[in-house]
């Protein structure tokens, strides 16, 4: 049984069919790339999986459970974490606090324990701190922990968002164009980091990315979308030889 299976998703905005009977599956520990031209529906898939958009038909099954009936915060509780195409950080919190928020469901002292500074809250805070330190080390952000999240370089902020997503110890990680806007030198580094995360944590990853070099070098499987439909699926080599893909995507965009 695949870890994630997206089945026949349908999503429309007014007259636009953003997703058209879209299906694909991701196995446990697999790194699946989702590529396609602008407007193909890649971010919309993420928004459906994470409970932000409600598709009109179809299913999203994660570990045997249909996610489509759950609100976004319950989807997170199932072990799904994501980053956003446009940064969505908390600018007035520090880097550390941004990452800690990713662990919102890891430890759950209630409001009263927090306000009264009860031992339960202090223990939770220590545990979260230790987890955050690990994630910060993995993403190379240790030295920036105390900085406010505003005012850091774009590439660093992208890593903070990745760290926040990792903090929840997800079983499925959705990355929406993590390399977009990075200076060329950092793209390779980020690719290595993603490959390492997959290797060390053994989690399933869905990667939406326009950087074909990175996609082809680290993915196990590539799903190609165009106009909300899956036009091709296979290993990086298979996909890069597919004539329909070359026509629809690589031909015009690359």
């Amino acid at each position: 049984m695949p870890r994630l299976s997206v089945e026949e998703l349908e999503l429309s905005f007014g007259g636009i069919r953003a997703l058209n009977k879209l299906s694909f599956a991701v196995a446990e520990g697999e790194l699946c790339a989702l590529v396609g031209p602008n407007g193909a529906g890649k971010s919309s898939v993420f928004n459906c999986i994470t409970g932000l958009y409600r598709p009109s038909a179809g299913r999203v099954v994660f570990d045997g459970r249909d996610l489509l009936r759950l609100p976004a915060h319950r989807v997170a509780a199932q072990g799904v974490a994501r980053t956003f195409q446009n940064l969505a950080l908390f600018p007035r919190l520090t880097v550390l606090e941004n990452v800690l928020l990713g662990g919102h469901l890891n430890e759950r002292p209630g409001p009263l324990a927090c306000a009264l500074h009860l031992p339960r809250h202090r223990r939770a805070e220590r545990a979260l701190r230790a987890q955050a330190d690990e994630v910060l080390a993995l993403t190379g952000l240790e030295s920036l922990a105390g900085n406010p999240a505003s005012g850091l370089p774009y590439g660093t902020l992208k890593r903070v968002e990745l760290a926040r997503a990792l903090m929840s110890r997800p079983r499925l990680l959705l990355l929406d164009e993590p390399a977009a806007g990075l200076p060329h030198g950092e793209v390779g580094e980020l690719g290595d980091l993603i490959a390492r995360i997959r290797a060390e944590l053994g989690i399933s990853i869905v990667l939406v990315e326009h950087h074909m070099g990175m996609v082809m070098s680290i993915s196990d499987k590539v799903v190609v979308l165009n106009l909300g439909r899956r036009i091709c699926e296979g290993t990086p080599e298979e996909v890069s030889r597919d004539p329909e893909v070359i026509a629809a995507y690589l031909g015009e965009a690359a």
Binding site: T50, H73, F90, R92, L93, E97, L101, H104, C114, A115
Partner: peptide
């Protein structure tokens, strides 16, 4: 105390980025 806690961070996160807070489990 509340400001420097899990709940306080969530409250501020909602102010700054409600969608990101929601997908992080708040």
């Amino acid at each position: 105390n509340f400001r420097a806690s899990r709940v306080g961070r969530a409250v501020i996160a909602i102010r700054d980025q409600p969608i990101a807070a929601h997908t992080a489990g708040v």
